[in-house]
C-alpha cells in the first residue's frame, strides 16, 4: 500500500504538464521584455560606437555642430542633474519622513498624498511651462541652470517622496514601538533605527531618479538649456547645453549632420544613465548584504 503512494496518477501528470506550459510562457514573456533593450543598445553601439572617443567626449562641437565633440553638453547635464538633486533630495526626503513618521491619518495628510500622486501624473511639458512662468519670469532667474534645475526638481519630487516613504515603511513597525517603549522620542527613533535601515532604499530611489532627470528634455528646453553654447557654465545663473537637448538638436534641427553623430550622443546619454543605474544596483546589493532582520 505504501509503495503505491509514489505512483503517478493521471491528475499528477496533467498538473505537471500545465506547470511546464505556464513556466515556458512566463519565460518567453520575460525574454520579450529584454528584446527592446537589446535592439536599442545594439543599434546605438552599431551606428554610433565608432564616433565615441576621448576627443568626442572632451571637445566642443564645431562647424554648426556637425563636427567636434559634446563636452559642454556633457558638463551641462551634470550641472543640471546635480543642482536638481541638491534641491529635490532634501525636500523630498524631509517630506517623506514627515508623511511616514509624523503625520496622523487625517484629511490634511490625505490632501497632501493626493497632491503628490497628481504631481507625479503631470506631463513634463506642463512642468516646463510652469517652470517658465514661475522660475524664469516670476522669480526672475531668467533662462538659467537654476530655473531648469528647479523645474526638474519639482518634476522629480513626487517620485523621491514616494520611494523614500516606501523605504521608511519597509522598516517594521515593531522596531519603532520597541524604541518608543524605551523612552526614545520620534526623532531619536528615526535617527537611530528607521533611517539607518531605510537608507539603502532611499539612495536607490534617488539614483534611479537621477537617471530619469538626465534624460528629460522638455522641462529644460525653455528654462535653461541652450541650443548651442560652446562654453562651460560658470554658475547656476548661466545657461548651458545639455545632452538630451543636444541629441534632439543634432537629430532634427541641424542640416548636414553625419549619421553617426546623433547615435553617438544618444549612446553617451544612455551610457551615463546605465552607469548611474549600475552604481545604484551595486550599492543596493552591497547594503542588502548587510540587511539586519
Amino acid at each position: 500500500m505504501n509503495s503505491e503512494m509514489f505512483i503517478e496518477s493521471d491528475l499528477n501528470r496533467t498538473n505537471k504538464r500545465t506547470q511546464a506550459l505556464y513556466r515556458t510562457l512566463f519565460i518567453i514573456m520575460t525574454l520579450l521584455l529584454i528584446l527592446p533593450v537589446v535592439i536599442i543598445l545594439g543599434t546605438l553601439v552599431y551606428k554610433g560606437g565608432g564616433i565615441i572617443s576621448i576627443d568626442f567626449l572632451f571637445t566642443d562641437p564645431i562647424n554648426g555642430m556637425t563636427e567636434g565633440g559634446i563636452f559642454p553638453a556633457l558638463v551641462g547635464t551634470l550641472w543640471l542633474v546635480s543642482v536638481a538633486l541638491l534641491i529635490s533630495v532634501p525636500l523630498g526626503v524631509a517630506a517623506a519622513i514627515y508623511l511616514s513618521e509624523y503625520a496622523a491619518d487625517n484629511w490634511f495628510t490625505r490632501i497632501i498624498n493626493l497632491a503628490i500622486i497628481n504631481l507625479a501624473g503631470v506631463p513634463s511639458i506642463v512642468h516646463a511651462l510652469f517652470g517658465v512662468g514661475a522660475f524664469v519670469i516670476f522669480f526672475g532667474f531668467g533662462t538659467s541652470i537654476l530655473a531648469a534645475s528647479l523645474t526638474l526638481a519639482i518634476m522629480t519630487l513626487p517620485v523621491v517622496i514616494v520611494s523614500t516613504r516606501e523605504s521608511l515603511q519597509s522598516v517594521p513597525y515593531a522596531f519603532r514601538e520597541a524604541c518608543w517603549n524605551m523612552g526614545a522620542t520620534r526623532w531619536q527613533t528615526i535617527r537611530r533605527v528607521v533611517l539607518p535601515n531605510a537608507v539603502s532604499g532611499i539612495l536607490t530611489g534617488i539614483i534611479l531618479e537621477v537617471s530619469r532627470t538626465a534624460g528629460e528634455t522638455a522641462p529644460i528646453m525653455f528654462t535653461g538649456a541652450a541650443f548651442f553654447l560652446p562654453y562651460l557654465p560658470q554658475g547656476v545663473f548661466d545657461q548651458t547645453m545639455a545632452l538630451s537637448l543636444h541629441l534632439f538638436v543634432v537629430a532634427t534641427q541641424v542640416p548636414n549632420v553625419p549619421d553617426a553623430l546623433p547615435y553617438g550622443v544618444a549612446l553617451v546619454l544612455i551610457g551615463l544613465v546605465l552607469l548611474m543605474n549600475s552604481i545604484s544596483i551595486a550599492f543596493r546589493m552591497h547594503l542588502r548584504g548587510k540587511k539586519k532582520w
Binding site: V171, A174, F175, A178, V193, P196, K292, W293
Partner: peptide
C-alpha cells in the same frame, strides 16, 4: 522597562 511576547531584537 517592557518585554514583549515575541522578542523584538532591534536591527543592530
Amino acid at each position: 522597562g517592557v518585554v514583549f511576547p515575541l522578542p523584538v531584537g532591534l536591527p543592530m
